[in-house]
Design a protein around this nucleic acid. Structure first.
Lengths: 221, 221
DNA sequence: TCGCATAATACTGTATCCATAATTATGAAT
DNA sequence: ATTCATAATTATGGATACAGTATTATGCGA
C-alpha cells in the first residue's frame, strides 16, 4: 500500500466546495455575478479549474451559466420552494420509513444522542447549533435508509434549499415547534412505527415550508 | 431584441450531449475508459471544452472521474438498480398522481394519442419504437405534474438507468405486459382516480425492474 | 437634452503548452 | 524463470495565451 493511496481530491472539487460554502453563507448572494478572474486571483489559481468547478455547481443548480454572459448565483422563486418542499417531504418521508425498519438498537442510540443535542441547543435558543444538529439528524436517517441514491437526491435538493436564508428557525416559536416535531418522529422510530415516522417527517417538512413562507411574508410587510 | 438572442449553446454542452448519446447507445460501454485526447481529435476541438463536458457528465453520474487516472463510463451494480427503481417508482408515482389531478381535457387527448402510438408499436412488436413513445408518455406526465424539480429528478435518474441495456422489452411477453400496465394507468387518469394512477405507476416501475432482473438472470445462465 | 451609432473595454470561450503523476516496459538480480 | 527496481512513455491536471462577443462609454447629430 503506497502512502499516496489517499488520493487528494482534484483542485476543481476543492474550489467547488469553497464556492458552495460562500454561497451557503450568502457571502455570494443569489443573483450575484460570479467573477471568474477575480476568484481565480483570490484563490491563486488559474481560470481552468475554477471554470470546471462552476460547471459542477451549475449542474447542482447552485449557479446559472448564461452563455457568453457569465455565471450567476441561482435565485430561487417562491414557486421553486413550493416545488421542492413537497418533493423533500416525499423523499425524506421515505427515508424515515426505511430507516425505521432498518435501524439497529445501536443506530437508535445514536439517533437518541443526536436528539439530545437538539434538545440542549433548543433549550439554549441556539438556532445555529440547532440547525447543524438538525441536519446531522436528517443525514443519519438518510444513512440508515441504506439507499445511496435516495440520499444523494436529498443532499442535492438540500444544497439548493440552502440558497435561501436559513434563519426561519429564529421565527417566534419555530425552534420549539421544530423540536416538538422531531420528538414525535423519534418516538415513532423508537416504536418501530414506520408509517407514522413517514407521515410525521412529511408533515415536518411542510411545517418548515410554512415557517419560511411566514418569514418571507414578514420581511415583505 | 437582437438577432443573436437565441444564444447558441456552449460547446461543452454540445459535447456533453454527444457523449451522452454515445453512452446511451453503448458505443461507450460501462467501464470503458474515456480517452480525452482521442475524443478531442475526433470532434476537432481542444481538450478544454471536452474536460468541462466530462465534469458535467460526472455530476450526472454517467461517468466516474478518478483523480489522475482518467474518466470511465459508470458501471451500475445490481444494488444500484435495487436502489434506483424504488426511487423512480416513488417519484413517477407522484407524477402520475399530480398529473391526474391537473390534466385538462386537451392534455388527456394528447395522452390518449401517445398511448395509441404505443398500441401500434406493440402490435408491430417494434421494441425500439415502443421504448421511444413510452419515454414520451412518461415525460408528458412529468410535464403535467407541473413540478419542474420533480421532473428534473426523474430525468436525472432516467439518464443513469439508460446506462443499462434497454432491451428488457424484448423479453418474451414483456412488451405486452408493459402495454397492459400502461392501459390501466391511462384508464385511471381518464377516470380522475389519482390514487390508483399513482399505485399503478408504482407497480409499473417495479414490473420494469423485475423484467430487467429476469433478463440479467437469463444472460448469466 | 436625448437618442443612436460607433469605438473601446472587458469578460467569456477555446486552444496550446507545460509539469507532474501513473502505468508500463525493460533490465538486472536472486 | 520470476520478481523487483528503475527508466521511459503517456495521459491527466493546471497555467497561460488568444480570439470573439457582449457591454459600456463616448461622441455626434437631431
Amino acid at each position: 500500500m503506497s502512502p499516496h493511496s489517499i488520493a487528494q481530491p482534484a483542485l476543481y472539487l476543492e474550489v467547488a466546495e469553497r464556492l458552495r460554502q460562500r454561497i451557503f453563507s450568502h457571502e455570494l448572494q443569489p443573483g450575484a455575478w460570479v467573477d471568474e478572474q477575480s476568484l481565480a486571483e483570490q484563490y491563486g489559481i488559474s481560470r481552468t479549474p475554477l471554470r470546471e468547478a462552476l460547471k459542477v455547481l451549475a449542474s447542482e443548480g447552485l449557479v446559472t451559466l448564461k452563455p457568453r454572459r457569465g455565471c450567476y448565483v441561482t435565485e430561487l422563486a417562491e414557486r421553486d420552494l413550493d416545488d421542492i418542499f413537497p418533493l423533500m417531504a416525499l423523499l425524506e418521508g421515505r427515508c424515515a420509513f426505511e430507516a425505521t425498519q432498518k435501524a439497529t438498537p445501536a443506530d437508535l442510540k445514536r439517533l437518541e444522542a443526536l436528539h439530545e443535542k437538539l434538545e440542549r441547543h433548543a433549550a439554549k435558543g441556539d438556532a445555529n447549533g440547532f440547525f447543524e444538529v438538525n441536519q446531522a439528524f436528517h443525514e443519519a436517517l438518510q444513512e440508515l435508509s441504506g439507499n445511496r441514491w435516495l440520499k444523494q437526491m436529498i443532499d442535492d435538493l438540500r444544497k439548493v434549499l440552502k440558497l435561501t436564508r436559513r434563519d426561519s428557525l429564529r421565527l417566534e416559536g419555530r425552534l420549539k415547534q421544530s423540536l416538538e416535531e422531531h420528538r414525535h418522529i423519534l418516538a415513532a422510530i423508537r416504536e418501530r412505527d414506520a408509517a407514522s415516522a413517514e407521515a410525521l417527517m412529511h408533515a415536518h417538512l411542510f411545517s418548515g415550508r410554512a415557517a419560511l413562507a411566514k418569514m418571507h411574508a414578514a420581511k415583505q410587510g
